[in-house]
Nucleic acid binder design. Structure first.
Lengths: 129, 129
DNA sequence: CCGTATCCTATCGGATACTG
DNA sequence: CAGTATCCGATAGGATACGG
């Protein structure tokens, strides 16, 4: 997810960067789960229940690359790999948790707004006013 | 833009929902700009500088639908349409701003982590080999 | 058990042309 | 100026098969 060109004050670039990263699909989910406790690959997959190996791997790789997640390979047979949040990851968890709290608190407002919009929309979408 | 099925505790669903919405591409940018002042369509487009009409329209529609943005059509010729944050939108601005602040503060840490990762596993970064 | 590679589809998102 | 419709490339992401 390239952050595209941006002519705005310094606010936009890092924010779009982070948002594109953690807002991608499963990242917040993974971060939240790992914020609770370190988990193995399979445990994460089972907990999430709906993610493909490919996406879980990609998500973890990206998170690891960004320094949010630490991959701990025990090098055993059968393989055992544990993932845990780094300090940066736990740090990120704070504003993410705040956003999560907001989302839970205002969830119904958003849903109502959507219903209102969808109800008003078909009569409006043709013209303005 | 579906949030997919999710078997997790109540945390994940609304968060993924919100994150998928505002983390999509331009939404945070638009919200941040409108958080400063109401703006017309063309002003937004010029300020962002890199967004297409299609995407700006889509982004604003989605934001309007979710109740974050109010579309004010003056019904004049030539057309004049102003967009501003609703109360819900301004409310959302709070955790988003917090995340933005975090992003700015930790931007270098992330970049360093990426460099470290790319330096440590050059053969894995590309994915194809 | 922990991945990787490939295929395939849906969506994202830009460029462009057109309307009112 | 504000917005829509269409075409097109790029990417996200699931299903599956294969490998250590």
């Amino acid at each position: 997810m390239k952050p595209q060109i941006c002519h705005l004050p310094s606010d936009c670039r890092p924010v779009s960067e982070i948002l594109s990263r953690i807002g991608d699909k499963w990242s917040v989910l993974v971060i939240t789960l790992l914020g609770d406790a370190p988990l193995r690959f399979g445990e994460l997959k089972r907990e999430i229940g709906g993610i493909s190996q490919k996406m879980l791997t990609a998500t973890l790789r990206a998170l690891e690359r960004d320094g949010f997640v630490l991959r701990r390979d025990y090098g055993t047979v059968p393989p055992k790999v544990e993932y845990e949040l780094t300090e940066l990851g736990r740090d990120l968890l704070v504003p993410v948790t705040a956003l999560a709290a907001w989302a839970r608190q205002n969830q119904t407002h958003v849903e109502e707004a959507r219903r209102r919009f969808d109800d008003a929309c078909p009569e409006r979408t043709g013209g303005s006013g």
